[in-house]
Every structure is written in C-alpha cells, then in structure tokens.
Nucleic acid binder design. Sequence first.
DNA 1: GTCTATAAGCTGATAGAC
DNA 2: GTCTATCAGCTTATAGAC
Lengths: 225, 225
Amino acid sequence: MKIISASRIIHMVNKTHRELPAPGSIKAHILVAAKAEFAQYGFEGARMQRVADRAALPKPNIHYHFKSKQQLYLAVLERIIESWNLAFDQVSEASDPAEALEAFIRQKLRQAQQDPAASRLFANEMIQGAPNLKHYLNTSMRAWVQDRAKVIKQWMQAGKIQNVDPERLIFLIWSATQHYADFQVQALSLLNRAEFDDPVLTETADFLVTFILRGCGLAPDSRTT
Amino acid sequence: MKIISASRIIHMVNKTHRELPAPGSIKAHILVAAKAEFAQYGFEGARMQRVADRAALPKPNIHYHFKSKQQLYLAVLERIIESWNLAFDQVSEASDPAEALEAFIRQKLRQAQQDPAASRLFANEMIQGAPNLKHYLNTSMRAWVQDRAKVIKQWMQAGKIQNVDPERLIFLIWSATQHYADFQVQALSLLNRAEFDDPVLTETADFLVTFILRGCGLAPDSRTT
DNA sequence: GTCTATAAGCTGATAGAC
DNA sequence: GTCTATCAGCTTATAGAC
C-alpha cells in the first residue's frame, strides 16, 4: 500500500500558492496586525483603520500592499492553516500511540498559547460557516483527517488503544486544546489566573494528556481509595 | 455545612433583571433574529439591517423596541446564559457520578444542536475577550464552577472517580460539546454528513459519554484483543 | 513606496406622517 | 405601533502630490 505523506495533503490547500512575504518585510508586518484584528472581530467586524493602527501605518499603505480587505483576509487565512497539525503529521502505525497522541496534544496547546490569534481567526471563520474555507474543509482537511484516522484504526485493530471513533477523537483533541486559546478569558477566570503563562500551560497539557490518554485506555489508574 | 443551590448562583447574573418578553411577542421575535445575526457575525460585524431582514420588519421597528444595537445585544446575551448548565445544577455528592456526568454531557450537546446560535454568540463574546461578560465570568460563572468542582472533589475523595482537575474537566466538557455547535461546518465535513440530525447527535453523545467517563475511570475496557 | 485628501457608499439611529 | 425618508458619521477604497 502506498504511503501518502500527510504533509503533502496539507499542501493541497494552496492551489494558487504565492510565495510568503519575507519575515520582517512590511507585508509580513501588516499580516500580523491583520491577523489580530480579524481574530478579534471576524471579517465583517474588522476595520481597515484598526489594522493600520495596529501596524502603526497610514491606512492607504495597507491598501497599497493588499488590494482589498477580502484579499488581506485570505492572505492571513492561508498562512495559518499550513502549520496546523504538524506534530501528528508523520505518525504511522508503527508509532507508539501514547507518545504520538501526547506530542500532538502538547503541540496544539503550545500553538494555542503562542498564537491565540490564529486559533481565534479560524474559530471566527468556522462560526460563520466557513464561507472562505468550505473547499478546504471538504478536500484537504477531510483527507488529512481520514488519513490520520486510518492510523488510529490500525492501532485499535492491533489492540494498542481502546475502540474509539477516530474522527471524533481528533475533533475532541482540537476542541479541548483550541478552547484554551479561543475562550482564554473564560479559562483564566475559571482557573483564577492572570495570564496563560508557562506554568498554566504545563498543568493544562498534563491534564489533557492524562485525561485523553486514559480515554484511549492508555494511562494507569490512580484512584484515591 | 450549608448547601447553596447552584441555580441560585446562576440567578446572580441578572442584577438588573427585566421581565422576559412574552413568547410570540414582537420583542421575542426580534430577539430570535438578533441572536442569529450576532451569533454569526459578532457584535461589530452584526448589521441592524440584517436583523430587520431576518425578522422581516422595517429597520426602524427594531430601534423602536430596542433603543440601540448595544442594548439589543445585551438583551440577547442575558437570555442565553440562564439555561446554560441546568443538567449539572442539582447534582450533589450523593449523586452517581456516571449518571450525573452523562446527563450533563447529553444536555449540553442537545442544546448545541437545538440552539447552535446561542453557543456561537457566546463563543464570539469569549473570542473578543468577553467585553460584556467579564463581570459574569468573574462572579457567578466562577462561583458556579467552584461549587460544582467541590462536588467532583468529594467524588474523588470517596474514590468514586479518578483524580482529575475538576475545573479543567468542566472546561473540557464545555469545549467538547459546544464545539459541535460552534464548528458545526467542520464537524459535518469531517464526519461526512449533511446535517447535525438526531442520528449524528446520538452517535456523538455516545462517543463523548464513553470517552469522558473512561477519562474519569468510569467505563469498562472494550479493547479488541 | 508613502501619505494627505477625498470620493462613494454604507450604518446606526431618528424625525415625522399615518 | 408602524413605516418612509433621511441625517450625520463612519468605512472601504482611490486619486494624486511627494
């Protein structure tokens, strides 16, 4: 059976793949500002003036580098999806399920902490019904999930992990990790913390790894009595 | 020890509690339309004209019944939070953990299916940093979670469930269930379904109940080999 | 490439007839 | 209570000087 690299599937996203703006360039600078704005307010709520303010540039400069609000939004979206699920990308039947899932969970959570705007922008797009990402969802994302689900099914058939719906397991890991970025204000209030710093990240990652691995039948019992 | 009803905590939300518009009234009709609009586009992205279109009313009629966009938004928000976590509200130390958690998960998921707009509106508010719900998060929501966490801790001390961070367990249940409403378009694509109908709801609920109960050490092993 | 000035159209909100 | 007409201000986008 031919092995298809999951990372190759991800690259199918960019049909009209433009070269990325050089880091440090003005375009890259604007994209960072735009990501924060679109993440917080969604496409319709975003304001080009606020993008300009965030980038500390006059508004027409934004329009010089990106023809329209729509094109700026699409440019931001494109850059986000690429580095989305890297840690679970090269996993195969031979991989250790506990190690692979742990690495996946920790990587997703680290991304949520390091770049919550990316996660929130994606969340906004999903909430609105993915008007700009429907094609991506129905092609490369679905292909990636089915490809990764196949590996999980092999683990199940080999008795390495519990029987669980693989697609829903991936969806649960996405939700449980991304939620700490998207609903960060709620998580911090609930945990009575001021910021999502490294200690909170570690405690959260430990909890999620333990809980999800146990859900897969992969962690020891540690009951009190 | 004095037992405080969790539902009483929820009622602390409405400091300035106005009577709810009668079902079938024009105000109630407008609120339904506004909920859908705010849910999809967030506060800044929402358009009063679209609210009017959704309600099939002239725009000034909206302003006649609600003074401003802000007030309409707050009116919608108020109505959502009340029925948020009812199924886990009356649970006590004496309750069976598996039954209580299962009822909680199934109720949250049913709400996500029946009223995804409510979940999405709340998600939008969280993504934006909860500008209108910071106070709620830091008072009644936190009190509710701590109160419910206390019960879970009692279950843990009694050896009824695994040792897990109770606050993070509640947060995970919220994320895993609400995600099916907020990211419905992604879930449907991933599961290759056309709509979030009853069969999908049941399968999803069964998966989540099994998986989360097992994470709490509350479900039998069902490995293949 | 950058920025001031401004056009063209949209948005929240209201005045005033019915 | 309802609806047409409309205002003042804001929003995307561009023209044109530098």
